[in-house]
Design a protein around this nucleic acid. Sequence first.
DNA 1: CGCAGCCTTGACAAATGTCAACAAACGTGG
DNA 2: CCACGTTTGTTGACATTTGTCAAGGCTGCG
Lengths: 232, 232
Amino acid sequence: MPDSAYGDIRKLDLFAQMADENFTGLMRGAYVQNFPSQIELITEGDPSDFLHVLVSGAVDLFSTWNGRETSMATIRPISTFILAATVKDAPYLMSARTLEKSRVALIPSQDVRAAFDLDGNFARAIVTELAQCYRSVIKSQKDLKLRTSLERLANYLLRQQRHAGGGSVFELEFEKRRLASVLGMTPENLSRAFKGLQPYGVTVAGTRITIEDHNELKRFAKPNRLIDDHQS
Amino acid sequence: MPDSAYGDIRKLDLFAQMADENFTGLMRGAYVQNFPSQIELITEGDPSDFLHVLVSGAVDLFSTWNGRETSMATIRPISTFILAATVKDAPYLMSARTLEKSRVALIPSQDVRAAFDLDGNFARAIVTELAQCYRSVIKSQKDLKLRTSLERLANYLLRQQRHAGGGSVFELEFEKRRLASVLGMTPENLSRAFKGLQPYGVTVAGTRITIEDHNELKRFAKPNRLIDDHQS
DNA sequence: CGCAGCCTTGACAAATGTCAACAAACGTGG
DNA sequence: CCACGTTTGTTGACATTTGTCAAGGCTGCG
């Protein structure tokens, strides 16, 4: 594995506190691979042979059933995905595909489980990471069950605005058809939802969003820290 | 803490492999309490001072936003809840209320985190439990995003039928208004959904469900192990 | 008995999805 | 740099799904 990726991975919360020898041992069986855009890295139902670490690029986690498909999450560097499947030695529940040219480190799942037994700090980090993932999905579940699509979009825009620095003009982080899928609606519905937010001062030009009056949108969206805050 | 509850808790996957002294230490600060039905045990947003273990009875985990409420899960003995909040020392994301007279063991969260550091087997068990919880929510998320309410009900009935032993007649495990909330719909919609399944051989009398032709319903529901199987 | 809560039903409204058409944006190869 | 085709986004018309409100029935319990 190249030194650059090695150092980046080492800095991840998941690995930062590991003993040197355990981390080195874990990396011995690992390798880094480059993928072009739109490559399916893993397929739901397959056995979880590797823990994946996204070093650069972007990855979409999605699921299908009965001919339908929905986007569950987007992974950005540097972070791991499908940790739960690795830990449980169970089949992937989601598929993953690259959204752009990406570098991915692959760590054999059995090595991860072995390192977990050897290294208390690593075990602790895994627990924290899993708890974090769990809480994220719960928030997303609340978003889906308690809000209409218009409310979900409004809150998404507020989150994205904050994430982009808080300015009144910012860019969407991915294409609208996928945003629609993430928010649990069709692209057509998303188009109309953007129009539905015009009365609250939201204007759209391509991927560029302008929020004229933050507080006006907030009054409509009613963001909640137990759904919309990424920490806590 | 009474010996009976002590032994039951000890048998939980989460605690079964712990060293005796660590388990005893953990239980020293714990206590068991009896609650009548319809008591709110925890409120979302509160700090997670205790890990809860349901010893007997039943508990509903639910969330609210903007005057709306939705049921996220039902806890049956013997199992823990809000483990993730305890681990992360973060506020509860869900509220919990008893559905019937219940016995709950309360273990101080800081003791749990301390025991985690001391006992590798306990740490492993927590990871497994969290991974399990995570995967359950993901399955539920897929159910919500990929299926219509009629399909969700059909698959729920198949799961419940299997859970009840597989016979063609079985009982719903909770009242319909809460089932509706779990499935992400209104009680009125659930009523109509039951009628919508009549063509597939489903009949309802109170909480008693009859599935005349299992395969007929299955053809409609298209159950999938990556959504509907509780293991894997 | 009478009340309260749950369930069901009907009529209606709102939200969301589908299909088709077209416009806009993008990438590729000339 | 342009021409072309492909993909994505938008819009309208419409269908379906889901929610809302109101009324009435059923059940369980004091």
